[in-house]
């Protein structure tokens, strides 16, 4: 767990209200670079809302979310950046982004945070390969001289497009979808669609990958394969992962760090081992009211 030694994302006092409903309440946590950080909690705990805040789809009512590229020191720069009206800062060793100030597409384009969705959002009428090409829109757009060069058929764009196809092929092989590259995305079975969404997000070249319930609806074998894929993304590509997951076997096996939410509030934060033994977590999951009840339950399940 590298949350302290090498943070990539620092979420501070984030609160999100919808009218009178407080979906996320004063949430703070740090995700470490090269870690798989899992965000867990019962249904309706506000996990997806946190994701939507981080990826710019919602603007948090209050709070700050700082993401860094490279080795810029967050502590010494974040206040300075907050005082300006800008959303990012280039300093020694890297750059710092305030995600709450950025529009959704900029979070992906500039801060390099990619995401998947709980209810899969593929371009179902486009082929698998096309899905991955769309994900590389921004670099390809530059290579096509904002369409003008591409329109008259410049060589540079042609070469860059070939590179993009190579990147897509790499991720298709990695997700075992290469044989289905030319099929419409809507034709794929559910498990493949989940993996395609991850491949598509990876094609944007993210530093942080946010996965919203990637194992939902997968069978045990697919679930194991997913574990391997996520580990490889972390280990071979150095992409940090933020994960919402209900499947505890996935969470406990692959996460380096677990944050537990209940009714929008953080109730636990630590390594999987620490969280597993936290009485508040057990109470939240099993619905116990107070400490004594928790102890009774613990006794019952033999902890």
């Amino acid at each position: 767990m590298r949350a302290k030694s090498d943070p990539i994302l620092r979420v501070e006092n984030v609160t999100m209200r919808f009218g009178g409903l407080v979906a996320v309440n004063d949430l703070s946590f740090v995700a470490g670079r090269g870690d798989i950080t899992a965000l867990i909690g019962p249904n309706g705990a506000g996990k997806t809302t946190v994701f939507n805040c981080i990826t710019g789809f919602y603007k948090p009512t209050v709070g700050r979310m700082a993401l860094r590229h490279g080795n810029i020191d967050i502590d010494s720069h974040v206040e300075k950046l907050t005082d300006t009206s800008r959303d990012s800062l280039n300093g020694t060793g890297g750059s710092l982004f305030l995600l709450e100030r950025m529009a959704d597409f900029q979070v992906s384009a500039r801060a390099k945070v990619a995401r998947t969705f709980q209810n899969i959002r593929l371009f179902s009428g486009m082929t698998v390969l096309e899905n991955l090409m769309v994900a590389q829109h921004n670099p390809l757009m530059v290579a096509s001289n904002w369409t003008l060069g591409g329109l008259i058929g410049l060589k540079g764009f042609h070469n860059r497009e070939k590179e993009a196809i190579e990147t897509a092929k790499y991720w298709l092989e990695k997700t075992k979808l290469i044989d289905r590259a030319d099929d419409p995305a809507g034709d794929l079975p559910y498990g493949d669609q989940r993996r395609l969404e991850i491949a598509r997000a990876m094609c944007t070249g993210p530093v942080l990958l946010c996965l919203d319930e990637p194992a939902a609806g997968l069978n045990p074998k697919e679930s194991l394969e997913l574990n391997a894929l996520l580990r490889s993304i972390r280990d071979d590509h150095g992409t940090s992962i933020l994960l919402i997951e209900h499947d505890m076997s996935v969470v406990m096996q692959i996460s380096d760090h677990v944050v537990v939410l209940d009714y929008g509030t953080k109730i636990s934060d630590g390594t999987p081992e620490e969280v597993k033994n936290d009485p508040r977590v057990i109470a939240a999951y099993l619905g116990a009211e107070d400490e004594t009840e928790v102890q009774e339950i613990e006794a019952e399940v033999g902890l």
Binding site: F57, D104, S108, R121, M126, E130, V134, S144, T147
Partner: peptide, 27 residues
């Protein structure tokens, strides 16, 4: 021609799912 360029693909992606487009950094 435009259909085969990034901008054309982005148009079609927009038709398919706008939110996914934004999540991929498309303005």
């Amino acid at each position: 021609r435009l259909r085969r360029l990034p901008v054309g693909r982005a148009w079609e992606a927009l038709r398919e799912d706008e939110i996914a487009c934004r999540s991929l950094g498309i303005n």
